[in-house]
Computed example of a mutant assay.
Amino acid sequence: MENLGSLNILRIPLANLWDVPAVRQKMETDAAEFAQWHQQWYCSYSDKARADMRTQLGWALENPTYNFQQLLPRVTTSNEDILFYFTYLLQLIEQGECPNESAQQ
């Protein structure tokens, strides 16, 4: 398998799409619950993992022609919807704060 370096961190959010391949539809039908779950999910990671994830989500949005499906086997979500999901995650992350995060800074 190809060494993906820092892009490996994107496998974490991509794994969520195994259970929710129709991510746009899920976001429309369960918006509040979806957002709450993702905020808790994101906050469960270490400070370093969260920082790496934010950085690579930003990179992904700057490189929309990259084939993100190749990062994780069995992801059936289209690249377009993966980018939509990454945009959603980055906005959610930037709007929210993890418990004790402000105390750590």
Rank of each mutant, 00 (worst) to 15 (best):
Q25A: 14
A103Q: 10
D81S: 06
Q25S: 14
N79G: 08
F84V: 13
A15S: 15
E97T: 12
P73W: 06
N79E: 06
E28V: 08
P21H: 04
P21A: 08
F86Q: 06
T55L: 04
Q70N: 09
Q40N: 06
C43R: 01
R50L: 11
T87N: 15
P99C: 10
W41F: 05
R50P: 08
Q69P: 00
A49K: 03
L7A: 06
D19K: 00
L4R: 12
A32S: 03
P64T: 10
Q91S: 15
T76A: 11
P13M: 07
C43V: 01
W37S: 04
Q104R: 06
D19I: 00
T77L: 13
E80N: 13
A35E: 08
A60Q: 03
Q36I: 05
T77K: 08
Q91R: 15
T77D: 11
N63C: 01
E97P: 12
L92E: 10
S44A: 07
A51G: 04
P99Q: 07
W18V: 15
E101F: 09
P13W: 04
R74E: 10
A31V: 12
Q91D: 15
S6K: 15
W59T: 02
R54C: 07
S78F: 09
L14Q: 07
L17F: 08
L10H: 05
E94C: 13
T55M: 01
A103H: 05
P99F: 10
A32H: 10
P99R: 06
Y88V: 01
Q40H: 09
T76K: 15
K26Y: 02
L72W: 14
L14P: 05
W37E: 14
L92Q: 11
N100A: 10
L83I: 06
A15V: 10
N16Q: 13
L61N: 00
L17P: 01
D81Y: 05
S6A: 14
W18R: 15
G58R: 04
N3S: 12
L57D: 03
P73M: 07
A103V: 04
A103M: 09
Y66C: 02
A60F: 05
K26Q: 05
Y88C: 09
G96A: 07
Q56S: 01
M27C: 07
F86Y: 09
Y85A: 11
L57E: 01
Q36V: 04
L90G: 12
L72Q: 12
I82G: 12
T65S: 15
A51L: 06
G5E: 05
Q36D: 06
L4G: 02
P64F: 02
D19E: 08
I9E: 02
V23T: 04
S44C: 03
W37R: 14
